[in-house]
Each structure stands twice: as structure tokens, then as C-alpha cells.
Amino acid sequence: MSENGHDTQAATRTYLTIFGALGFLTILTVGVAYMDLPSGPGVIIALVIALAKVFLIGSFFMHLKDEGRLITVSLAVCLGLVMILLVFVLPDLGIHELEKVQAEEALKKNPYAQMHESATAGHGAAAEGGH
């Protein structure tokens, strides 16, 4: 069981360095959150820092960098499936948001268009009612 003392010392040094990096990234993510950046960049920076921490924990503490293809490919498939849960639904939210923005822009360009559309619709409904 006993390993080369030099190897274990080097491993200990690496783990302590990773600990320092994780601590620094934690402080950084809290600091960035309190800077109250606009929501887009704020979310991206927080997620990038979280992913960096996940990478460090996975690679060094869970020894994924030394694992064979069987485990890394299985994990990649698993993460891909999670991404399906997340990413395949997001376009629906994006489309609704886009439609809302387009409608607002159209209204700004021609505020009378909406009045005209509603008047036409009202006229059509009245005509249908008359028949």
C-alpha cells in the first residue's frame, strides 16, 4: 500500500494549491455578485466561475484527469442528457421573449397599426354577427 513519499508529498502540494484556487474562486464569485453587473454578464461570469470550480474538483479531487475513457465517456453522456433537459426547453422561452420584443418594437415604430388591427378585427366580428 505504501507509496513513494515524494509522490504523496507532490500530491499533497497539488491538493493544497487546488484548495487555494477554489477559495479564491469562491471569493471572486461573491465579489462579482455584489458588483451588481447587468443580469446577462453577471449570470455568465457566475456560471463560468462555478464551472471552473467543478472542473478543478472533478479533475483533481475525483482524479478524473487520470481516469480511463470508460468513466469519462460515461460521464460525458450523462452530462449530455442533463443538457437535453435544460437546453431543449430554453428555445421555447426564447421564442416567447423574442415575440414580445418584436411586438414592442413594432408598436414603437407604428403605434396606429395596433389600433387599426383591433378596429379591423372589431369590424369583422360585427360583420360576422350581422350574418
Binding site: A33, V43, A46, L47, I49, A50, V54, I57, G58, M62
Partner: peptide
Amino acid sequence: HFVDLVWVILFPILYLL
């Protein structure tokens, strides 16, 4: 480490964003 990793993701999405 997995338990730690889950918290690393939960922390920003629940508390900071």
C-alpha cells in the same frame, strides 16, 4: 467530492444570481 460539487453549483444559482 460529488456532494461538494453539487453545492458549488447550488450556491451561485440560489444565493447570488
